[in-house]
Design a protein around this nucleic acid. Structure first.
Lengths: 358, 358
DNA sequence: TTGTACGCGTTATCAC
DNA sequence: GTGATAACGCGTACAA
């Protein structure tokens, strides 16, 4: 019965102006807080706009102002893996933050046979976006090179090898895994193996570097077979663990490049009859909710993905508003989240090691 | 050195026309395949457009044509849980498919203190979207009610209670869990408990219904304490399992509303010293990659999320192009994916049951 | 303080 | 076949 109400279609400024007995120009200025409009008029216009549910046409406004308040985000090309759960969280935070400034988030995929830069180029040339956020950066990333010369605000979640001339927000991966190593060494571990990801990806490279540097600092041996690269999912983690268990000098702890890898490793270990958290320690990186539900709980270096998304959104917008300012380059720390998967090495193992190969 | 090349800015149709010595109108018609333009001209224009990297301004085109080739997708309000990994996959497929028709995907979040319908309403009124895709439908879903009267193409991933007057694509949840029950009963299980989700969510309701119907059909007892609702994540699954293990008539199998719940359950069981796949069987729903990596592998009803995204994209676009046609309403089947977590009940348990409570 | 008129980059409808 | 010209809905100098 009372559903006759909102049946009105999208209302234009012309209708609103006629409704008010004002000119379109006046209405527009009233709505945009021009100083030379009577207070009373402003309020009257505001009220009517609210009542009629008027929202300026984004399309027309863009054309008139020549700006596009939309951030483009290109999903990483589908390579058989599932989308990083981390990305979904970032998108959520990003969209949330952008909405505060009335910006939009345009999500694009990469069609088969094309690459990300092509997609970004088309988005720019067709005027669909006024800025970019990119994630999952490689050490040398063509997207960054492209954006450098594209004359658009953009923010990188992560970094590249050379990263002094653009805005980025990254987790301090090296420090994170240095901290993780400190934690393990502090509990008495010496033989620590590393399950790393694709070393072309900057975060994987940095975590690996953090591991290696800390191993050197603490004089932990990185024995042949201790350092695995290219572990990109749970299945690969399983295989790597299977190999590690055959190692003549079995490690007492495993540092894993991501939680997904760590969880894969934990299952493989459990399957082999090894009690994680007692016979062997495992540390991951990400802080996925799943890590809290497994037994033992996963000790991990947690990063606040949603907050990262929000902060990155804040940065793009501010950069679009003040193009002259300096690039913000922000390093956040991952927080060591202690659960049951990492503990001091079991005594019997320590004993073994003592009377061992040497 | 050779980087002088693409330094040209975004090129407009005016520049292209001048470059060709043609009028803007002619260029536009040539590019849009008007029948009354000379073949030769068309090719000449095409070539020049390619060379200059011309792409019509989406903004101007929208204004002129009065259509917005953008699909809106509103992320479910952040309720403390992580974003459904399923959603990320759908977005990927959706964006991929939309790109084929030169449509865009606009992803929006719901700011605190607002609701999804408000967000959708604003997106429409500001002319930012020309269609919607929604997911995670509730049995009674205000978003659907809103869209029904909004006069926009939209497609629902999932369904509502009444779903005959709009386009949707859903998994046959009832059949899926009927199949799962058949599988369990076929192996000899009789005492099957259910870990269900939020019954307001349509998929959870349907899966629950599938379980109950099959239990009745096979005359499996749904003992008090066998049916759990509101299990929405791994942690809740843990707690539910803890309760189930105290049950005087312990079930031999667990049907779980999602893989996440199933994985939580598996960990809780393992922690309690119960061997999943031998002492108790577990079946999930989704087909997450993680289910393949754990031990035992998770038997699950898999759905092709990425493909769902693609199909849904196809439907919105076609609906936008042919508004008069009927609503496509598509039911896909989940596929029983057998791994190690569900097997015939262990003999000793069967023996127990025989001499048991009766 | 407000109204008028033009421009933003396209597409579509006329004439020629 | 092609070239002018008028929209599309808004923002904004400029005039009043």
């Amino acid at each position: 019965m009372s559903r006759v109400k909102k049946r009105r279609e999208v209302v234009s400024i012309a209708q609103l102006a006629k409704h008010l007995g004002l000119s379109e120009g006046t209405v527009s200025r009233a709505l945009n807080n021009y100083p030379d409009i009577a207070r009373k008029t402003i309020e009257r216009v505001r009220k009517a706009a609210d009542e009629l549910g008027y929202r300026p046409s984004t399309t027309a406004r863009r054309l008139a102002r020549g700006v596009v308040e939309t951030v483009g985000f290109v999903l990483p090309a589908r390579d058989g893996h599932q989308i990083d759960p981390f990305l979904a969280e970032i998108l959520d935070g990003l969209a949330t933050e952008l909405a505060l400034s009335d910006w939009d988030l345009l999500v694009a995929a990469v069609p088969d046979g094309h690459d990300e830069v092509e997609v970004m180029d088309r988005l720019i040339r067709s005027g669909k976006v006024g800025g970019f956020v990119i994630a999952r950066t490689k050490r040398k990333d063509p997207r960054v090179d492209f954006l450098r010369s594209a004359n658009l605000p953009f923010v990188v979640q992560g970094r590249t090898e050379n990263c002094d001339d653009y805005a980025w927000l990254d987790i301090d991966n090296e420090k994170a895994f240095a901290d993780a190593m400190d934690h393990l060494v502090g509990m008495g571990h010496r033989k620590i193996a590393y399950l790393g990801g694709d070393p072309d990806l900057n975060y994987a490279w940095q975590r690996r570097a953090g591991y290696l540097a800390a191993a050197r600092k603490h004089e932990c041996p990185v024995l042949p077979g201790y350092l695995h690269d290219g572990i990109t999912d749970e299945m690969a983690a399983r295989d790597a663990v299977t190999e590690l268990l055959k190692h003549p000098d079995r490690p007492t702890a495993l540092l894993c490049v991501t939680d997904a890898v760590a969880i894969g490793a934990i299952h493989a270990l459990a399957h082999a009859g090894i009690t994680v958290g007692r016979d062997i320690s495992v540390i991951g990186f990400d802080g996925l909710p799943m890590g809290e539900a497994i037994h033992p709980g996963l000790t991990t270096m947690a990063q606040a993905s949603y907050e990262i998304g929000r902060e990155v959104g804040r940065i793009v917008v501010s950069q679009a508003n003040a193009p002259a300012s300096e690039f913000s380059q922000i390093l956040w720390e991952a927080s060591l989240t202690i659960r049951g998967s990492a503990n001091p090495p079991a005594l019997k193992l320590a004993a073994n090691a003592k009377g061992g190969i040497s």
